[in-house]
């Protein structure tokens, strides 16, 4: 819950940052760097303190928020946009969290942890490729 709250708060904070502050490629590079670091840590079975995990997710939420900044419009349109984005981000973020937690803690399936590490390695590979692609694109 702490992780989810940190992500949502940081996401809303990110929405408040003017879109022109950072270029999209810079945000993409940072997001992919974050994805690479997080998934590589999972793949390598490295355990992080809870504070670091919260910081990771807050950074991801902030960057996602910056990348999702709404265009200026009537307040109710903007409010609906923000609410929809928070819901979307929370949903996408919480699904892997709940599924992983269920398999590992509730079901105690040994292979589930290995499966999650394999999926993390795949995500790390994709993030690394995306970083290279962003850097290679003029």
């Amino acid at each position: 819950m702490r992780v989810l709250a940190a992500f949502s708060i940081a996401f809303v904070a990110g929405l408040a940052i003017p879109p022109s502050t950072f270029t999209l490629s810079t945000i993409g590079l940072c997001l992919m760097g974050l994805a690479l670091a997080a998934s590589a840590l999972v793949a390598l079975n490295a355990s992080l303190p809870a504070v670091a995990v919260v910081a990771f997710t807050a950074a991801a939420g902030l960057l996602d928020g910056i990348a999702s900044a709404p265009d200026p419009d009537h307040w109710d349109v903007v409010a609906a946009f923000v609410a929809g984005n928070v819901l979307r981000a929370a949903l996408i973020f919480s699904i892997p969290l709940v599924v992983a937690d269920w398999f590992i803690r509730e079901k105690r399936w040994q292979w589930a942890k290995i499966g999650i590490r394999m999926v993390a390695a795949w995500i790390a590979a994709i993030a690394l490729l995306m970083q290279a692609l962003i850097l290679a694109t003029p």
Partner: peptide, 13 residues
């Protein structure tokens, strides 16, 4: 299967 995609991505880079 964890190592292969990671190094494959390096090759992709």
């Amino acid at each position: 299967p964890i190592v292969f995609p990671l190094i494959m991505a390096f090759g992709g880079v």
